[in-house]
């Protein structure tokens, strides 16, 4: 099987990068492929780069409340493009009730609280597997 491929980055003016960097390293160490876009992305630029790179999943690291507006905007942009790539988000700023709200809007998985590396990797693997099966 081709290696799982993820886009990892943050949205808008959120300058906290620790989480994104850490997840990137974690996935790379698990032999997954990462297209790392770092900070200062817009919903448009993320949607475009995800399509260009042909990633399996888009991962957004969230450390300020901007995500509450920008993640739904990203979902909208993807929909407009007819792109059904899964979006996952993570970060300590995401509260339990917001996690539910984001899932209801179409986010495929939310990593808040303190998930272990294995939990994150397993969830992402499952997501890629079911997505690829669905597409195949």
């Amino acid at each position: 099987m081709e290696r799982e491929h993820f886009l990892i980055g943050t949205l808008g003016l959120d300058q906290h990068e620790n989480g994104a960097v850490a997840v990137r390293r974690m996935l790379e160490e698990a032999q997954m492929r990462v297209t790392y876009v770092g900070r200062f992305n817009t919903p448009d630029s993320i949607a475009e780069e995800a399509a260009q790179a042909g990633v399996d999943v888009i991962g957004i690291s969230c450390h300020s409340w901007e995500y509450l507006d920008m993640v739904p905007e990203l979902l909208e942009k993807l929909k407009e493009r007819g792109d059904d790539r899964p979006v996952v988000i993570g970060g300590s700023v995401i509260t339990a009730s917001d996690a539910e709200r984001m899932k209801a809007l179409g986010v495929s998985a939310v990593f808040n609280g303190a998930p272990s590396d294995d939990q994150i990797i397993d969830t992402l693997r499952d997501l890629v597997r079911s997505k690829r099966t669905e597409t195949a």
């Binding site: 990068e17 620790n18 960097v21 850490a22 990137r24 390293r25 974690m26 272990s116």
Partner: peptide
């Protein structure tokens, strides 16, 4: 970047 990755790895 190295410090960010190391910090998270040390905790995880």
């Amino acid at each position: 970047q190295q410090a960010m990755a190391k910090q998270q790895r040390d905790v995880s």
